[in-house]
Amino acid sequence: MSDTSAPIAAIVFDMDGVLTDTETIWDEVRRGLAAQDDLPWPEGATEAMMGMSTPEWAHYLTTTVGIRGDAAQRTLEGMAARYRQHLPTMPGAVEAVRRLGSRWPLGLASSSPRTLIDSSLEALGLTDQFQVSVSTEEVAAGKPAPDGYLRACDLLGVDPGSAVAIEDSSNGIRSAAAAGLQVIAIPHQAFPPAQDALALAAVVVGNLDEVTPDLVAGLAGSADR
């Protein structure tokens, strides 16, 4: 079977850490809540919450970190305040979305809540580039479970095996791979993925500028090899 026997049908982006450079902001806001509550920050907590849905990470903050009150509300209020100040964008994000969107249908599978997805895409001027977007609030389980990517592919009307995911984190890579997508990994410098997760990626690149239509198209049929 040749590589062109199963052409790429769609691309599904992650958002935080791929399009927006917000992983550090999530960490700073959550650590800030712990500091406000005079709590130590548990080792591995940052990495553990990457990809979790809002109920999942709120539960983690409450039970594992010990955050008091409504952990979700406190966190999202902090995130919204930071976004109003400045929404940092990953280099080449807008260009990459427009470049790939001119050739393939695009989806988004994000761990952010719906309100932050919509406001982020609007701020980036990319709302009309995505045919579908899925928050892990809207599926049964967050990353590393495959639910978000499976839902995005279902809404796009494509088989997951013919889709490509662009991810940065361990849980994100695991989620997309478990759903059956080919994964292009762009490791986040501040929070690099674990080696076992990175091994699940079809391609590892250094930045979004390297994610060209030729690179994506070259993944066609590779799941069958």
Rank of each mutant, 00 (worst) to 15 (best):
K143F: 10
M1P: 08
L39I: 06
S169I: 01
A165G: 10
Q189H: 13
D21C: 08
I186C: 05
P55L: 05
L87D: 10
L100I: 05
A201D: 06
R114A: 07
R103V: 13
M79V: 15
R84N: 12
M50E: 11
V204D: 09
I117Y: 11
G78Q: 11
P40T: 05
R74E: 04
R30Y: 01
Y60T: 01
V216I: 14
Q182W: 00
A48L: 06
R31W: 07
A80K: 02
M1R: 11
Q36S: 14
M1V: 03
P55H: 09
G17L: 06
S133Q: 14
M90G: 03
V29A: 12
A201N: 08
D14T: 07
D70T: 06
P192V: 09
A185C: 10
A45P: 08
L124R: 13
D38F: 15
D168T: 03
G172T: 07
I173F: 06
S170N: 03
N171A: 13
E210P: 02
S2G: 06
S120R: 05
A80W: 07
P55N: 05
T62L: 03
E43W: 01
S169L: 01
A163M: 03
A220N: 06
S170M: 02
R98N: 12
S111H: 09
Q85N: 11
P213I: 10
G157L: 00
A152L: 01
R82K: 15
T212Q: 10
G32E: 09
R82Y: 05
I11A: 00
W26L: 01
V139L: 05
D38P: 01
P192R: 03
I25P: 01
V18H: 09
M15H: 05
R98H: 14
I25H: 10
P160E: 00
R98C: 03
L87P: 02
S119M: 12
D147S: 08
F191M: 08
G180D: 02
D154C: 05
H188D: 15
E122L: 14
A81S: 14
A199P: 06
M49L: 06
T24I: 13
A190P: 06
F191L: 13
S112L: 08
L155D: 00
M49I: 14
P55K: 10
N171P: 07
P55E: 09
A217D: 15
L106R: 00
V29W: 02
